[in-house]
Simulated scan of single mutants.
Amino acid sequence: MSEEAAREDKTPRTARGARTRRALLSAAGQEFGEKGFHEGSISGITRRAGCALGSFYTYFDSKDDIFRALVNDMSGQVRDYVSPRIAQARDGIDAERVGLLSFLEFARTHKEIYRIIDEAEFVDQAAYRAHYENTASRMAARLTKAAEKGDVRPDVEEVHAWAIMGMNVFLGLRYGVWDDSRPAEDIAAIANALVEKGIGRQS
């Protein structure tokens, strides 16, 4: 059986199985977020999840396997939290403000995401790269639609998406993880003024 087929074979087939897998992923987020990948353990994950060791191997092959799944899962959580909020934005420029605001909110309640994603660079380079490439791709598509509507400059491209994403990543680290005392709305407004001056519709 190929690695891909084996992974598919571990997909939960019942609601109970889906809940168990979710509990394991949540526990892995806590374990790796607190201890890091190398110090974290499968036994620590199962203990946090309240699962038997055998349950772990029903859904994951190894510590590496659940870490890879966790990176993908956390990337999806960010997307699922941010995207519906962006859909309510007034226009293309406001969408970037809402996007950063939503990300700051997410980071403040999931501070472990930075340690996990950063470690992925050394534990699973493919998952690490996919996290940022997928995020930038969604942002680039959003900017393209904004350009088509006339909300932003017509020459926006991938470079703009990566630049805005890079800004958001470090603002999330500074004002989401290191110190979350300043209102997220203030941070998003200040950053959005830069975005508007940079790619806003030219008069």
Rank of each mutant, 00 (worst) to 15 (best):
A95R: 02
F170D: 09
N72V: 03
N168E: 09
M167F: 10
D118N: 12
A95L: 01
Q77F: 00
I86R: 07
I199C: 03
Q125A: 12
G150A: 07
D73R: 07
A95F: 01
G172S: 08
Y128P: 05
L104S: 01
D151E: 06
S137G: 13
S137H: 14
A107D: 01
R108D: 00
D151M: 05
D118A: 13
A141K: 14
T135Y: 14
Y175L: 04
G172A: 08
E112D: 09
A89D: 03
K111V: 05
T135I: 12
A193D: 13
H131W: 13
E121M: 11
R115T: 11
A95K: 01
R153E: 04
E119I: 02
E185V: 11
R138V: 10
R90V: 07
E185W: 06
D118G: 05
R201E: 10
K111N: 01
V123M: 07
V169A: 12
N192P: 04
R138G: 13
E185I: 11
T109K: 09
R90I: 03
G198I: 06
R153K: 12
R138L: 13
R108T: 02
D94V: 00
V159M: 11
R85L: 08
N134D: 14
R108A: 06
F170C: 06
R79A: 10
G166M: 09
V156N: 08
Y175W: 05
V98Y: 01
S83H: 06
G198S: 15
A141V: 12
A87N: 02
E185Y: 06
R153S: 09
V78M: 09
A87F: 00
A130S: 14
Y81T: 09
T144E: 13
A87D: 04
Q125R: 15
F122C: 00
D80Q: 07
M74C: 00
A184S: 15
N192D: 09
N134E: 15
G150L: 06
H131M: 08
A136E: 11
W178A: 12
W162E: 10
T109L: 05
V98A: 02
R138W: 14
R201I: 10
V195K: 04
E148T: 09
S137N: 14
K145T: 14
L194W: 13
Q125Y: 12
T135W: 15
K111F: 00
R201H: 12
D186P: 03
W162I: 09
D80T: 06
N72G: 14
M139P: 02
R142S: 14
V177W: 06
H110Q: 05
R85C: 01
G198D: 13
D73S: 08
V71N: 04
R129E: 13
I199W: 02
E96K: 01
F103I: 00
I164F: 12
I113R: 05
I116Q: 05
E121R: 14
K197D: 15
L173H: 11
L101M: 01
A188Q: 03
P154N: 08
R174D: 11
V177Q: 08
R142E: 09
